[in-house]
């Protein structure tokens, strides 16, 4: 009976770079991303019998990769990397005494639905993400790139909702300032 087969000898050639890119966006560090890709592919090798051909080989491998990336975040939690810090409080430096923006947001004149067409802006976001403090970057990735529910993030990483809102706001505010400062200068 014909059955879908995997061809592990060609995984690196076929999917190595895209798996690496996918991971690097999420974890920032190149050597960690390499390790995760390797772990995922080895896990795939050991689980080849479970590949039933219901999905493509590629999406099956990406499914494994996604699990390994979440494992990485769980390890970060064990290491205390999600614990709140005193400076996670709202940054009073963003507003003046009357509560007005000091560095106020400008009109980007970009339709969110069309934002992804802007290649420069996408590249700029990748750059700006790497400028965020680790803890902010991680939460932004889980929320906006992984698309996790806030409740899931709070449960999984033992974060208070109010803390999550504060940190996400600060991450977003830093990102928009970075994008404005570097790429959207008039």
């Amino acid at each position: 009976m014909a059955q879908e087969k995997t061809d592990s000898s060609r995984w690196v050639e076929r999917y190595g770079d895209s798996m690496y890119h996918y991971t690097l966006v999420r974890v920032r560090d190149g050597s960690i991303a390499e390790d995760i890709v390797q772990t995922a592919l080895i896990a795939g090798l050991k689980a080849q019998e479970s590949f039933a051909g219901r999905s493509s080989e590629k999406s099956w491998l990406f499914g494994i990769l996604k699990h390994k990336i979440m494992d990485h975040f769980r390890e970060a939690k064990k290491a205390g990397d999600f614990d709140p810090l005193p400076d996670d409080a709202p940054d009073p430096g963003d507003y003046d005494a009357a509560g007005h923006w000091k560095n106020h947001p400008r009109d980007w004149k970009i339709d969110p639905e069309k934002a992804a067409e802007n290649k420069q802006l996408s590249a700029a976001l990748a750059h700006c993400l790497d400028g965020l403090p680790d803890r902010f970057r991680r939460l932004f990735v889980l929320k906006e790139i992984e698309g996790l529910d806030s409740a899931e993030i709070c449960n999984e990483f033992n974060i208070k909702p109010t803390n999550l809102w504060v940190m996400l706001h600060r991450a977003r505010n830093q990102l928009r300032q970075c994008l404005e400062g570097q790429w959207l200068k008039k």
Binding site: D17, Y20, H21, V25, R26, L125, E144, I145
Partner: peptide
């Protein structure tokens, strides 16, 4: 805009500027 950009950046078919 940030949300859409982030979703785009994180796709499986992301631009493969990063290479192993």
């Amino acid at each position: 805009v940030l949300r859409k950009l982030a979703q785009h950046l994180g796709r499986e078919e992301g631009t493969t500027e990063a290479r192993l």
